[in-house]
């Protein structure tokens, strides 16, 4: 796997504010790479460095193995889909999409063909004469995508491109983006704060926190084996288990993550206690999510744990527990995953 983008110990400071603090990252050619983190974690700064809008205060960025230090944004083989789409309001959709080709001096005829193809691909044919202000949010998002892709970049950067869309449209665009990326084979680098989106779309993803990379891996690795407490809590729901007496192999200490769907909830006291650990508690809250039900259970020592139980309907073994019901939570010690403390705290 060739590397499309490589960060070598990159720092970015704005005055006293540290946006990125020693990023080492390698993104392979043709990868759909997700950058996930809360706002202010440095994800967008990363994209801006790749696009060339900002320069690293320290460290180096390589594009396809070459230092990008002295390459201005307009000479980089990288295009961006901006968070606010940044369409040119004074141009038609066709002119917007054809802008990159126009400044590169592609002749009018070829431009027309390629813009036409692109608009067809994002299913906006027939809207070429309109202005951005006459389009809906979803349509503008597609224009922004077409405007970037028409240049056939080697790397496409997407900065929270689905953030402004409603849920249905977002899910539809997730599928479209994914299949588009597979067809084109372009490296997609995708910034999002939505962990569901990052998990479902990325080949690999990096979890960012406070200007540092917490963990890099495939969605499954990150979900099943979160490296740090931050990863475990930010990606998906997690029970952080610190020192439960039961179920730990003797002598094991530390902090563990336990996913709520791996916790089994029962209204009957479990009989066998061989591989499973168990703790008794009282249901404090029941949150109905449609496909699943989330139970918050108060366990001894003033802590609480969550268990997510699929909404199995008639297949359910036992009636749903009400708040106040005494329940037993049990899990397999194989599902406990040891965490290292976040470097950035």
């Amino acid at each position: 796997m060739d590397s499309a983008v490589r960060f070598r110990n990159v720092c970015l400071r704005y005055g006293k504010v540290v946006a990125l603090d020693g990023i080492d990252l390698e993104i392979g050619s043709g990868e759909f790479f997700g950058i996930l983190g809360p706002s202010g974690s440095g994800k967008t700064s990363c994209l801006r460095l790749i696009a060339g809008f900002d320069r690293p205060s320290d460290g180096a960025i390589e594009l396809h193995g070459r230092s990008a230090a002295s390459v201005p944004p307009y000479d980089r083989d990288v295009n961006t889909v901006f968070q606010d789409y940044a369409l040119f309001p004074h141009m038609t959709i066709e002119q917007n999409v054809g802008f990159g080709l126009m400044v590169k001096g592609v002749n009018r005829r070829e431009r027309r063909t390629r813009v036409g193809e692109m608009l067809e691909m994002v299913r906006l044919e027939g809207l070429g004469e309109r202005r951005p202000s006459q389009l809906s949010g979803g349509q503008r998002q597609r224009v922004a995508l077409a405007r970037a892709l028409v240049n056939r970049p080697s790397v496409l950067l997407l900065d929270e491109p689905l953030g402004a869309l409603d849920l249905k449209l977002r899910q539809q665009m997730q599928v479209e983006l994914r299949s588009l990326q597979r067809t084109l084979g372009i490296t997609f680098i995708f910034v999002t704060h939505d962990q569901g989106e990052a998990l479902s779309m990325s080949d690999r993803l990096a979890v960012f926190n406070r200007g540092r990379v917490e963990q890099v891996g495939t969605p499954r690795e990150i979900y099943e084996k979160p490296a740090t407490r931050f990863s475990a809590e930010f990606v998906g729901d997690s029970n952080i288990v610190e020192r439960l007496d039961a179920g730990l192999r003797s002598g094991e200490r530390g902090v563990f993550s336990l996913r709520p769907e791996k916790v089994h909830l029962s209204t009957r006291e479990p009989a066998a206690r061989e591989h499973a650990t168990s703790v008794a508690g009282e249901v404090a809250d029941v949150q109905f999510h449609g496909a699943s039900v989330r139970y918050v259970v108060d366990v001894p020592d003033g802590r609480s744990m969550t268990a997510v139980v699929g909404n199995l309907g008639s297949r359910a073994e036992q009636p749903a527990a009400e708040p106040g019901t005494r329940v037993w939570l049990n899990w397999s010690s194989d599902d406990l995953h040891r965490l290292r403390e976040s470097e950035s705290g």
């Binding site: 696009a51 944004p73 369409l87 400044v103 970037a148």
Partner: peptide
């Protein structure tokens, strides 16, 4: 920035 990004 978009303009520069597109090669202008």
């Amino acid at each position: 920035e978009a303009s520069a990004d597109l090669g202008a």
